[in-house]
Structures are given as structure tokens and as C-alpha cells.
Design a protein around this nucleic acid. Structure first.
Lengths: 232, 232
DNA sequence: CGCATGTTTGACTCGAATCAACCACAGTGG
DNA sequence: CCACTGTGGTTGATTCGAGTCAAACATGCG
């Protein structure tokens, strides 16, 4: 891989604390590849051959069943995906496709597992990463089971708003059909949910959303740190 | 703790491969306690003081938001819960209560984290356990997003049927209101879902369910190993 | 027996998916 | 410059799955 990218990868939490020699062994075994937009990287059910690290671009994780499809998560730089499958040497539970031109680091599963075995600090980092991923899914699951579509949208808007500086305006990071699928609703329903939020001071102009009445929106959304806070 | 219980705990995957001395250190620090039925052990939001191991009985994991409540999982012997919170030293995302008189091993979070740091084999076991928990939630999440209530019930019945020997009959492991909550529906709706499955050869008598036409039920349920198989 | 709990049924409401049409806009090519 | 087209988004009408509320029913237990 390009040596210019090394520091970037090394700075990822997952790779920060590991021994130099373990990092080297992984880097030597890994592949760097650039993919165009809308390329399917993996499909659910396939054996877990690689751990993927998104360096540039964006990847969507999604799944199929009974003829339906849903988005499960978006991975932005610098983030990994399909870690659990690789560690368990089990089939992927999700498919992945680029939603932008993306540069991706692919670490062979064998080499990753060897590195975990050899490097205590790396094992500790893996545990932290896995625990975080686990808690993220639990939060999504709680959100889906305990909230209506409008509530999920309201809380998602508050989250983006907070992440982007909280100055009353935010831009949606994905197109609306993707956001709808992430939130567990149809595009039509998302559109209606935005309309439902209008009386609470939410105005939409393309991908730009303005929140004119944070108090009202929060009263409706009832944000809950145990669902919405990505840090804990 | 009672020394009679040690082998049982030691035989749990999580504790099987660890060094004798690490196991001892954990056992020394741990508390053994018996709780009556319907006791709340932890509440979401509390700091993660203990890892819990169910030795006897059964524990329900559940969560609240916006005045609603939902079951997230049931833990049977020998199983652990709240592992991720303990490892991350973060607040619990779920509450837990006994649904039977239960004997429970409580391992102080500090001691558990110390054991993970000291014992490579234990760290590896923790990684496997965490990865399994992660994949279990992903499967639940996929089920909820991709299936209707009737489909979720049909697949759950097929799972219990398979687990219990697959002889055409199964007994529901929990009462119906709990099962309903686990499946993300109301008790009323579960009752109707059973009725919907009648034409597919499903008859219910209390907690006993008979599957008279497996082919028909499977055609409806479309079971999917990437959602329903608990082993992978 | 009387009471509590869990379950089922029925009527109704509500949230969400579906189907279809329409709109806005960007990119293309005449 | 303007029609043509494809895409993403919105709107409306309708259907459907699921929740709510209320009542009936079953079961088990003191």
C-alpha cells in the first residue's frame, strides 16, 4: 500500500496501540484498493476472507431477506466493517457496497487473527472496537423497537445537528432513500415524517435541514443518551 | 461461592480456556447470589459494576424509552450478560430482571478487566463471546427490519422446534407476553399471529405448539441461516 | 368460591407500506 | 436553446400490518 496512507491507518483507534511489528505484519499482508461508486464489495453468506477498513469514501452495509432489503449502517473513514465475522471465521451477516468512490484497505482474515493472537495491545483494541460495535447495534435495535418512525427521524436529526456544530442547521449525510432505509422506513414515509416535523420547526430544502425550534423538537423526540449518544 | 459450582462456571466457554490462576482471581473476587422471581438486577443507565453469569434460573434483558418497554433477550444457564458495558466501563444499555428464582454469579468489573489484561487465552475467549453477542443482535435486528410479525413468529417456532428435537412438537420457553415482546409485537398480536399460522398446520395448546405441516410453515417462514441459525 | 393473572377475541384506530401519479432537476443530445 | 429522459423526491389514495381499548375467558391458587 501507499506509504503515505500508513500514518492514517495507524492513527485509527484499532491500530494505534499495537506493536510496530504487528502493524508491519498486517500492512505487508494487506491490499489497498480503490473502488468506484456502487460496487458490491461483499455479499452476506460469503466466508469472511478480509477485514475491510474504509480510508476514503463511504460504504453502506445492507442485508436481504424475503425479497426485502434494508440498510444496516454506513461506514465512513476511518472505520472498519465485518470485524465480528472475521474474528469468528464465520459467514458475513451483511452485504457491503460503496456509495462513493472509495479507497479501502483489505486485511486477510488469517493475518488479522494471527495479529490478535500475537499482540496483547491489539487484542485489547479489538475488544474495545467489538464492544462499541455491539453497543451501536443494541442502540439501533432499541430505537427500532421503542420508537415510531417520526421519533427515530427526529432523534437522528438532533444527532446530525449536534455532530455538525449545533448552529440550527444540518446537512443530511446521505440521500433520503438511504436515510429512510437506515431508519427502517420507506422513502415515501420519510417524506411524510419530515412533514409531520414541520410544526416542530423543521424545514427541509434538499439535503439541508433547519431546526427552528430545538425545544419543541426535543420535546417530541425525547432523546435518550442510551440510544442516541454514539460515544458511550 | 460454593465450590460445587466452580466446575460448572469453569465449563462455560468463556472461562474454559483461561489460566487456572486467572480463574482463581476472578472466583475470589466474585459474589454468588440467589434472587427470587421478578427481581430487577440492574437498570439501564447505571454504571457497569459487575458482569453477571446466570448459573440457574433465567434472566430477561429489557429496555425502556418514551414510556414503552421491550424485551431484548433472555439469558439461560450458563450465560452471561452486560459484557460489553463492563469491558467499556460504560453505562448498561439494558435492564435485567429475573423471571425465575435464579442463582447468579457477579464478577466485579474491575477484576474482570484485570483478568482480560493478564490472560491472553481469556482475552481470546472474550473476543469470541463478544463477536457472538454482536452477531446475535445483528440477526435480531435484521429479523425485525426484514420480516413481518407472523414471519418472525413462524421462524421462532421453527427454531424452538429444531432445538427441542424436531419431533413435530415444541413447548414455548417463556410465557406468551414475553415471547411477544421479544418478537417485537403485543400479546394480542401474537395471539392473532398464532391464528394466522393455523392454516399452516400450527396448533397451540397452552405452552405446547404442534407443527403438523413443516413444509407449509417453512414455505411461509423462509428461514434464513443468516438470521435464524444461532451457531454461526 | 372468589380473585388474580395470563390469554384470547372483537371493534376500532393508527402507523406504515404500497401503488400510482406527479414534480423538480440535472444531464444529454438534437 | 429547448425538448427528452432518468433520477430522486413528493403527494395522494388505498391497503395492510400492528397497536389500543375493552370485554370475555381460562386457569390456577388461596
Amino acid at each position: 500500500m501507499r506509504s503515505a496512507d500508513l500514518p492514517e491507518v495507524r492513527s485509527l483507534h484499532l491500530f494505534q496501540t499495537m506493536k510496530e511489528e504487528t502493524f508491519d505484519s498486517i500492512v505487508k499482508a494487506a491490499y489497498f484498493q480503490t473502488f468506484p461508486d456502487h460496487v458490491v464489495l461483499i455479499e452476506e453468506g460469503e466466508p469472511a476472507d478480509f477485514l475491510y477498513v474504509v480510508i476514503e469514501g463511504r460504504v453502506e452495509l445492507f442485508a436481504h431477506a424475503n425479497g426485502r432489503e434494508t440498510s444496516l449502517a454506513m461506514v465512513s473513514p476511518i472505520g472498519t466493517f465485518i470485524l465480528a465475522a472475521v474474528l469468528k471465521d464465520a459467514p458475513y451477516l451483511m452485504s457491503a457496497r460503496t456509495c462513493q468512490r472509495s479507497r479501502i484497505l483489505m486485511i486477510p482474515a488469517e493475518d488479522l487473527r494471527a495479529a490478535v493472537d500475537q499482540d496483547k495491545a491489539f487484542a485489547a483494541a479489538i475488544i474495545r472496537e467489538l464492544a462499541s460495535c455491539y453497543r451501536a447495534v443494541v442502540k439501533d435495535h432499541k430505537s427500532l423497537k421503542l420508537r415510531t418512525g417520526v421519533e427515530r427521524l427526529a432523534n437522528r436529526l438532533l444527532r446530525y445537528h449536534h455532530d455538525q456544530g449545533g448552529n440550527g442547521s444540518l446537512s443530511l449525510p446521505y440521500d433520503k432513500r438511504t436515510l429512510a432505509s437506515l431508519l427502517g422506513m420507506t422513502p415515501e414515509n420519510l417524506s411524510r415524517a419530515f412533514n409531520t416535523l414541520k410544526p416542530y420547526g423543521v424545514t427541509v430544502d434538499g439535503g439541508t435541514v433547519r431546526l427552528h425550534d430545538l425545544v419543541a423538537l426535543e420535546t417530541l423526540a425525547k432523546p435518550n443518551s442510551l440510544i442516541d449518544d454514539r460515544r458511550i
